[in-house]
Design a protein around this nucleic acid. Structure first.
Lengths: 344, 344
DNA sequence: GCGCTGATTGGCAACGTTGTCAATTTGTCC
DNA sequence: GGACAAATTGACAACGTTGCCAATCAGCGC
């Protein structure tokens, strides 16, 4: 009776070998899809394995092969929608792969700088996917390279570097959005930029300014607000903008979460969207479809980016050459939150 | 030169033993915080380890101990905010623990039924945390119990069961929300229920009806809408409700995502919130603060639930007795989306 | 100094798998 | 039927760590 509470020991490769009347090596071959196993033998092994509910022991496998088959996804991102897209992209790439994904949410990229390699080694990671803004820190990148830890970065492709990376052209995307606003007649356009620790922040601002310059519209420092890529920071920035003496006719927030905050601030001030003020976001995250009206935004293929970055990382780990930078397409999505500039 | 591209082999316990002039067993003791190691010896070992950048090999450790130190988090949830809260809660509990967390997003709970144990064994999991609605399926629960796989469930505590679980009292919570709406004078209250595959769906409806009955208000089947816990399904339900002949003065959606959809539908119909119609949600997820006005909702401690469930699971794995059901407190949050019922 | 106790250390056999290499079987062609 | 190549199978030594147990050392009471 005392044995009832204990889990019965897992079957090992030896058990399967015995039951199928073969050697452990042959069982090993079957479970690794190696050639040179007669069909009949393979069936006997599989049958015995099924009867014993045998599953290969990952630890033993890892030990003897000298590999952990562990990949780490490092991110520090305030937007759950973005994070889940990242995870899903990475996990889907791993599906039916031999690798496992370990999550490393980081409090702050700055705090991680210099400790990342340490963490990776402790966990026995074989490679790392750096999501924004972890991949934006030159020190982290240098450290990983020095430590010969394979990694790929998800980062603006305009912020180039020798390491493999995946991203979109943030400059061009922000430029396209600004052009859209300009084409609607807006001239007094505010820009809410994101967390200064993200490379995308600078890139998007750069695109914004480029479009203004191109159209011959002067950049107005009073219309540049600092945000942190969070809803709350967007709300605060919106409140400042709408309370200020120089009220914009359009606000371009560097991501959807902040844009949603700007929308709420607008409503607090009784401003109709897009009648009195247009609001644009960036990311095409779920939140952009929840605001009313829905947000005009830039579709960023977050899922695909994570998928591609994971793909590249696996290639890297396997020692296959891989192209340096992958530039994924973005898309301007015009929805209800932007409209013609008010007269005057 | 050819060695330049290769990673230099990781230091092993033997290397550390040699360099520190001790035995591997002593090094092992130091790294496992075992007693009976002289301070001086410990220091020598630590110094050597640091110099060699030694990190214990997890695979070897797992193999010899016969444990994987892997925990699986299974979920099938359409709401990223909820999912990230779950993950964070579980990960934080694991912080500085010996366990690792593996993610298992499931396409559909139904499809997983009967395969979960299989997946767990393949991955070598030591235990499982079942998030809604995975823990609601009796077949899954029975299967895991039969296979002696330790697990805890996050599920409505009113849907009791012999297995350890963590949750809130969904009936009481839904009842409280309904009472809130009734107290504002609403009598024609619609209810948008969630995915029928979730136990919470039935529980919340139950609480809704209990509050109506208590107040002597007849339950009106025409005001019961089927949703799927997604924003889109809430939007569709809202459109049906506002287009129907029996327009409600208040809508209680069983989660925030659907409530946000109802809000959008209301705006499409030119209905002011809360002037013409009140809308209430459930979860207190990020989305409830993004709508305008912000949603009156039930705060559900998702993070704490995942934390507690993981805690209970570890206790279970360690063979410690643990209380059967943990009921966490919920809280009614009255915000701008609910107001006095219109006259009439 | 002796004997005893407990603290400290080390030796060695697992753990379950795969890589290497040798042994055996099968098939093909004269 | 024999020779040769290819297919198939098996034996055995790693892999890096911890558990078990024996060995050694230090301190204490006499």
């Amino acid at each position: 009776m005392e044995a009832a509470g204990r889990q019965r020991a897992r079957a090992t490769i030896t058990d399967v070998a015995k039951r199928s009347g073969t050697s452990i090596k042959t069982v090993s071959r079957v479970f690794n899809d190696e050639p040179f196993v007669r069909d009949g033998t393979r069936e006997r092994v599989l049958k015995a394995a099924a009867e014993l509910d045998y599953h290969p022991n990952m630890a033993a496998r890892s030990l003897v092969r000298g590999r952990s088959f562990l990949i780490g996804l490092f991110y520090e991102n305030p937007s759950p929608n973005y994070v889940v897209d990242l995870q899903t992209g990475a996990l889907d790439r791993l599906h039916d792969e031999r690798f496992r994904l370990l999550l490393f949410p980081c409090e702050s990229a700055r705090a991680m700088s210099g400790k990342l390699l340490q963490v990776a080694r402790t966990s026995g990671l074989e490679g790392i996917v750096l999501a924004p803004p972890l991949g934006d820190d030159p020190r982290t990148v240098a450290e990983l390279r020095e430590g010969r830890m394979p990694f790929t970065r998800i980062a603006p492709t305009t912020a180039l570097d020798a390491s493999p990376m995946v991203g979109i052209d943030d400059v061009a995307a922000a430029q396209a959005m600004t052009q859209h606003l300009l084409s609607l007649g807006h001239r007094r356009i505010a820009f809410v930029q994101g967390d200064p620790g993200h490379a995308s922040t600078g890139q998007r601002l750069c695109g914004f300014r480029a479009a203004l310059a191109e159209a011959g519209v002067a950049f107005e420092p009073a219309l540049l607000e600092q945000g942190m890529y969070t809803f709350e920071s967007g709300l605060a920035a919106g409140r400042r903008l709408f309370a200020g003496r120089m009220r914009p006719s359009a606000v371009f927030a560097a991501n959807d979460d902040m844009a949603a905050g700007v929308c709420v601030a607008a409503k607090e001030h009784g401003l109709d969207i897009p009648g009195a003020v247009s609001v644009a976001g960036f990311d095409d995250s779920l939140i952009s479809r929840v605001t009313w009206p829905q947000l005009t935004t830039i579709h960023q293929p977050t899922y695909d980016m994570a998928h591609a970055a994971t793909d590249a990382l696996i290639a890297l780990i396997d020692g296959q050459a891989h192209e340096r930078a992958i530039d994924l397409p973005h898309r301007l999505l015009v929805r209800g939150s932007t409209g013609l500039a008010p007269q005057g």
